[in-house]
């Protein structure tokens, strides 16, 4: 069951242009992440995410949004709820194929939902 979840993140992470993908719990606690070693700008983004996940979700819920995109510097941050208690965040670089990554993120959220419920 959990192997499916880890593999799903591995698959998403292997797509060219994905710098990191992180599965958060709705209280902002990271469950698992994939990232290439130490990168200062990613750390800054992750600190921000940990603090803001709750607020972003509240806003998304209020507005009825399926996902939300933030742009930080050269990064695109796609926030997609994956179940009642989990959120998938995909961080991509400027040159990444955003359409493909959005579709793959959506696919991943469905698998994650199956895994955790």
């Amino acid at each position: 069951m959990k192997k499916g979840l880890e593999e799903t993140l591995d698959d998403l992470y292997e797509i060219e242009g994905v710098e990191a993908c992180i599965l958060y719990r709705i209280d902002g606690v990271p469950i698992t992440l994939r990232a290439h070693g130490y990168k200062e700008h990613l750390l800054e983004t992750m600190f921000w995410l940990e603090k803001q996940i709750k607020n972003v979700l509240w806003g998304m819920n209020k507005e009825g949004l399926a996902n939300t995109i933030f742009y930080f510097r050269n990064n695109r941050i796609l926030i997609s709820p994956s179940s009642k208690s989990t959120i998938l965040v995909t961080i991509t670089g400027g040159e990444a194929n955003q359409q493909l990554i959005s579709l793959e993120t959506l696919r991943a959220t469905r698998i994650i939902e199956e895994c955790v419920t």
């Binding site: 069951m1 469950i31 009642k84």
Partner: peptide, 24 residues
Amino acid sequence: GFGELYDRTLRITKHRGSKHGDSL
């Protein structure tokens, strides 16, 4: 309390003098 996999979680916040897992 959502009844999902990561609702009931354990985290080892401290384990003095020993290596330990730091995940959820």
